[in-house]
Computed example of a mutant assay.
Amino acid sequence: MTHIEINGSPATADTLRLPALTSYGHFTAMQIRDARVRGLGLHLDRLRSATRELFDGDLDDARVRADIRHALEAAGIRDASLRVYVYWPDGDERATLMVTVGPPQTMATEPKSVMSVPYVREVPHIKHLGGFGQNHYLTAAYRAGHDEALLADPQGVVAEGAITNIAFWDGSSVVWPDAPSLLGITMALLVPRLPSAHRRVTLADLPSYRSAFLTNSQGFAPVRRIDEVEYTVDTELMRQVTAAYDAVEWDTI
């Protein structure tokens, strides 16, 4: 079950009209454990920056944290998958915040199969609402027996996964595609903790990499293939990724 609060109060049929009827907004997704989260400052920065860009308004960090704490307390749990959505109806003096609280989730660690698709997200640097194309191609990948879709532009330049970031291993560096995409929080936490490089990656380049892995708010997992390109699961690389991620401190909400 999901507990939903809007502006610090339990959601009602009336207050749910806004999220039900508008797709103009943004959000962040996080995994909460013992009322703590990795990268809290990055989540708050994401929300504040997108609110400024989309609505030309300010969002108070203290308000966001207070609404998260209240929703967790009302739900009666300290481990959760939690999202904070931001809307700003015309004429309102401040943003509307919706917090959803559900069961905790962790990305399954079995190697993933990925299907490339001819699509890139609009305004990709913002974690925005209304991603029909993204969901359409992700559903197509699922129906074809894959675990994720890989978004690439008409020239075959790789950007990101439908709901993940992707990284490639060339034997010495973790290569993150240098293309317009969303900077995921897990990616942002791993980049400075791994031997990282940002490089243009195309679909034609995929066979040149030894291995790959995916990241999102639920964690990370190795890739076993993209389309017809098979990858070896590099256990030493995944050990390094695990160690880097485990070294990230948990922040109290």
Rank of each mutant, 00 (worst) to 15 (best):
G8A: 00
G8H: 05
S9M: 13
A11R: 07
D14C: 13
L18T: 03
P19F: 05
T22G: 07
S23I: 11
D34P: 05
D34N: 14
R36Q: 14
R36E: 11
G39V: 02
L42I: 09
R46K: 09
S49A: 15
S49R: 14
G57E: 15
R65Q: 14
R65D: 09
R69L: 14
A71W: 08
E73W: 09
E73C: 11
G76L: 02
I77R: 15
D79S: 05
S81P: 10
S81W: 15
V84N: 07
Y87G: 00
W88K: 12
W88M: 12
D90A: 11
G91S: 10
G91W: 12
A95D: 03
M98G: 02
V99C: 05
T100I: 06
T100K: 04
P103G: 09
Q105M: 11
T109K: 13
S113F: 03
V114E: 03
V114R: 00
V123F: 10
V123L: 13
H125M: 05
I126V: 08
K127M: 00
H128Q: 12
H128K: 12
G130T: 05
H136W: 15
H136M: 15
L138W: 06
T139Q: 12
R143T: 04
A144P: 07
A144S: 11
H146M: 15
A152G: 06
D153V: 07
Q155P: 03
Q155R: 12
V157C: 08
I166A: 02
A167L: 06
A167E: 03
D170H: 14
G171M: 04
S172E: 13
V174W: 01
W176Q: 04
D178G: 02
A179Q: 05
L183N: 15
G184H: 03
T186R: 00
M187D: 07
L189P: 04
V191M: 06
A204H: 11
S208T: 15
L214R: 00
T215A: 09
Q218E: 13
Q218A: 15
G219L: 05
V223Q: 04
D227Y: 07
Y231G: 00
T232I: 09
T232V: 11
V233A: 01
D234I: 07
R239Q: 12
Q240R: 14
Q240G: 05
A243H: 06
A244S: 01
Y245I: 02
D246N: 13
D251M: 02
